[in-house]
């Protein structure tokens, strides 16, 4: 077992465990922290797949900006574990079983597919240089339009969150 594989399994285990902890944590702040752990694990996977740019962006945007936003909101509202009494056990089981069966069904559907290899080390399409070329050659218009999206989201967030 090579070092890459060890790393792969480690990151996988970390992602799954952290994801479960996101769901089962009583305290929302803990959930946020576990989610950050998930994002780190996923970024690690990106690095293994030699998608360095995405790994960094993932960390900056998700783990950095978005989760901080979440934390801010949680702290603003002063939420803690007692605010969410889980009364309906039936709904809890139903949700768990539904989610589990969704996973089982999809896995069962895909387990017999032709097994191809994803290139892990090597391959340089994930480098900033190459992605930048493609982005600014072929996708420059969507990229610019996404700035308009951001602007409108910003305005929207301000309008919605305004106190009146």
């Amino acid at each position: 077992m090579s070092i890459t594989e060890i790393l792969f399994w480690f990151l996988t285990a970390l992602a799954l465990l952290s994801a479960l902890m996101v769901v089962f944590s009583k305290n929302p702040v803990h959930s946020v922290l576990w989610l950050i752990a998930v994002f780190f694990a996923i970024s690690g996977h990106y690095i293994i797949l030699n998608a360095q740019f995405l790994a960094i962006v993932n960390l900056i945007v998700y783990a950095g900006a978005i989760m901080v936003l979440f934390l801010f909101v949680i702290m603003l509202m002063n939420l803690n574990a007692e605010t969410e009494p889980q009364k309906n056990r039936w709904l809890w089981w139903a949700g768990t079983i539904a989610g589990g069966s969704l996973m089982l069904v999809i896995i069962a559907a895909l387990k017999n597919t032709e097994n191809q290899m994803a290139q892990i080390k090597g391959g340089d399409i994930g480098l900033i240089q190459n992605l930048g070329k493609v982005l600014f050659n072929d996708y420059v218009l969507p990229f610019e339009i996404s700035s308009v999206l951001f602007l409108s989201a910003m305005v929207g967030a301000v309008v919605i969150g305004k106190k009146d």
Partner: peptide, 27 residues
Amino acid sequence: MPINYYIFLAVALFSIGVMGVLTRRNA
């Protein structure tokens, strides 16, 4: 790495997300 591993990992993460959406009530 076989692509199936990634598929299963992604499906598992996705399903955990679904489960969370279904079971948790905190928005």
